[in-house]
Design a protein around this nucleic acid. Sequence first.
DNA 1: ATATTAGTTCTAGCATACAAGTATCCCAGT
DNA 2: ACTGGGATACTTGTATGCTAGAACTAATAT
Lengths: 251, 251
Amino acid sequence: MTNAEDQPTAELTILQLLAGTVLDANQNITFQIFDILRDLIVSVRLRPGQRLSEKEIAAALCTSKTPVREAMIRLDEIKLVRIVPQSGTYVTKISVSRYRTACFIRLQLELGAVRGAALTPDPHQSIAVLDGILSQTAKAIAQEDDAAFCTLDDAFHRQLFIMAGFKDAWSTARRTQFDVNRVRHIRRMQRIITGPAQLADHQAIVDAIRAQDGARAEDALRAHIGDLDRQISALVRDDKMRGFIALEDSI
Amino acid sequence: MTNAEDQPTAELTILQLLAGTVLDANQNITFQIFDILRDLIVSVRLRPGQRLSEKEIAAALCTSKTPVREAMIRLDEIKLVRIVPQSGTYVTKISVSRYRTACFIRLQLELGAVRGAALTPDPHQSIAVLDGILSQTAKAIAQEDDAAFCTLDDAFHRQLFIMAGFKDAWSTARRTQFDVNRVRHIRRMQRIITGPAQLADHQAIVDAIRAQDGARAEDALRAHIGDLDRQISALVRDDKMRGFIALEDSI
DNA sequence: ATATTAGTTCTAGCATACAAGTATCCCAGT
DNA sequence: ACTGGGATACTTGTATGCTAGAACTAATAT
């Protein structure tokens, strides 16, 4: 583990982050804890590499270790934490190899989605939905509303999968994309604005789908995703990511 | 739950399946149990819909409920079992919607793989590996060696991803493919032989890669996978699958 | 014969206690 | 100053007991 001083921003203790959180005793405790921790990790409020203590979390949430541990097991299973026997439980670092794999998976699935969307038999209504999302996105960018932008970005991609007839494919594959989301969150925290460029890319994709031109839609998507290897080396070189990433998926 | 009498074949109790299994006390008990149960479920020796008792399994393996439960939680997380509060833990039925989604994911990722494989700069050695796998596959088919056939099929697909430079993509995505594997196992148990056809398809893919013709490789792969919707309706209609499948992913 | 309801028996959820391994710190020796 | 080793204080892994709720059974009322 690196020192807190080495990190770009101050490391918040889990205790600070959970302060004031109360659980609903009538709902399943394990899943409440799971949701809380997953959100904290994906939004990088819990830092990659940070150590988590089952006991400490249990105390902060006024519960016993068992549900905390069971939530940790689920988080370990989706590789958001790594439980190291007799040592501790750590928030996983962002794995470059996992990130690269996730980008490949994302690209391939979205290629299928835009291809399918371009073949939608009666596309008018579906395309109207896409147009609506894009115009709302433009508003969100103008108002610098990050949260809305993210939601709309998500809605855009989901709509493509719906049009292709594979509504569930994206929600299934999202489980492989946590590291991509963490990188995005870090970029966004550092006010790295890519909104306008993304909007233009999305517009090009919609135009191709409107023209029912699957090949052009695929090309537009490839352009949108960009060159993976260059993106990877930029990620590895990025000083702001230092301490957050690991080449392989250790810790 | 349906009656055991309704099922195509006799339902083996978990106790029968675990008879004689002893765990290594020096290794992590939870993961040993996880591996055992995962294999039993994917190979359909534990039947879709079958109820599992934490207590019973713990007794059969001479351990306590805790590691069994933790293994169950991991299995629940990858949707091989479903833990129903205060009711029981059940082997999930094969979900038609999950199966369909898995086929889409599989196709899209393999499209990327064969496309990438066709672009391998110095392909001679890699293609020699593919040729070797195919000739071994032919032997396995001649000898009706199911286990070897499966292993080689897996090796073939893995080699494609290696050639495309995305070695980990397949192992990552396999977590979405359990239902596909279960369907295969059921078909194989019923001696539904598709080996020769698969071998010919694989040969066509290799030929296209050898010619560095990415488009033709994609076409060969699409032909290999076939028409998804027809496959789905065949699956739903198949009497041998009755009781094993569910339209949505309930239970 | 059927519907309903009370009672019993099962389940998973959670709390707690203990066991076993790991990392750290302190101190002795070089 | 630095290295080596051992005690100590942590960590997760496992065992067990208890509770609340679901499901099944069987008896009762209609």
